[in-house]
Design a protein around this nucleic acid. Structure first.
Lengths: 200, 200
DNA sequence: TCCAAAACAGGGTGACTGTCCTGTTTGGAT
DNA sequence: ATCCAAACAGGACAGTCACCCTGTTTTGGA
């Protein structure tokens, strides 16, 4: 007992790695079960981390939530939305393309877990001002990136000048968020496909 | 003490009224704080009901959730969406009108608490199959009502035949749901106004 | 009037939750 | 080699949660 424990008792401190393991588990759990429905015990088990370590890196559950929003959700929006749209041939092609790409990805994995931003936004934006501010900022950046792309298109003659960039951006973000909500509730990506056509 | 208590100790059984009081409190609390963040104690206090009475009408918390979805949320969608759209001059005017009406109402009360259906859909559709089925059905009925109105418009020459009724309906529901999410996170109805224009 | 069933009161219970505390171990600076 | 702050372990803690149980009151029909 002593020998066995001593044999594998080699602890290697890796604060950043441990922190990321916690955020990995939290990002996934908050997505699937939600923030309130996820206990710190769940996170400890999923991440393979003790209570002491968890409390050392995140003094409160709220701190974990904020870290997930600011470090993970923001990054997810950047990677799956802002990046592809900016580098697309046009705003409309970029937006429609993301709709289709996400629909395809969801069909491939056969399960719709919803939009990370939207999921947390619904549960937390009224619960705490800090949560709300962090979530609203991501929505705003997302919209701004699309509107900026539309303006670039207009400047280079790829988009009708009658299109209001802010209106198109608002529509794109709103439609995507709502379509993901519906896809999550119905577990069917048909709505995403229909909206992909409409946003072209 | 005995006399005072005896004096106001007249209990009048009103099972349906008590049930509705619980649902009133639950509908409001689930909307503002969410399902998981609302305890049965919160509901007992808000509704002025004892634990025994609560348990008599709703054996589990899930039963309260299902009743709120099936009796209250479905009715809310019917009243604020399906009714107005059906009796509007056209589907587009009806849809755009509801966007504007809701935006106006929210600006009047100065606070955005989100769409009842969407709020519960996000928190509960992955948590339990029964919840998910109930929520998906409301989404489906909502969509079907709008699509049907578009078809009527087309039959009577008020709408271009190139418009796909199902696509327009999906867009309307998705855009509204998403715009409400954004309005809730930003506490700003600007997105709703922009989408109202776009859905005309 | 009587009585059974429904409606309600109110407290108890075990499980769980988020937080914190006290020790022990690690790693880098000296 | 030594030392100290950071990193981590593991459990204690008070509070809360959903659910259930027992007893009392009300109600409507016989």
């Amino acid at each position: 007992m002593t020998s066995m424990e001593r044999a594998r008792r080699r602890r290697t401190n890796d604060p950043e790695g441990l922190r990321q393991k916690v955020l990995d588990a939290a990002e996934h759990a908050f997505q699937v079960r939600g923030y309130h429905a996820t206990s710190l015990g769940d996170l400890m088990q999923a991440a393979g981390v003790t209570g002491g370590a968890l409390h050392h890196h995140f003094p409160t559950k709220k701190a974990i939530g904020l870290a997930v929003i600011n470090e993970r959700v923001a990054q997810a929006v950047e990677e799956t939305w802002i990046g592809p749209v900016v580098s697309a041939a046009s705003a409309r092609e970029g937006v429609s393309g993301v709709f289709a790409a996400v629909a395809g990805e969801l069909e491939r994995q056969g399960f719709v877990r919803g939009c990370p931003l939207n999921n947390l936004a619904h549960e937390l934006s009224l619960a705490d001002p800090e949560f709300r501010a962090a979530l609203a900022r991501i929505f705003a950046d997302w919209q701004a990136a699309i509107a900026s792309k539309v303006r670039t298109d207009q400047g280079e003659g790829r988009e009708d000048h009658r299109t209001d960039p802010d209106r198109y951006a608002a529509m794109a973000v709103a439609t995507y968020s709502g379509a993901m909500s519906m896809a999550k509730a119905s577990q069917d990506t048909a709505v995403l496909r229909l909206c992909a056509e409409a946003m072209l």
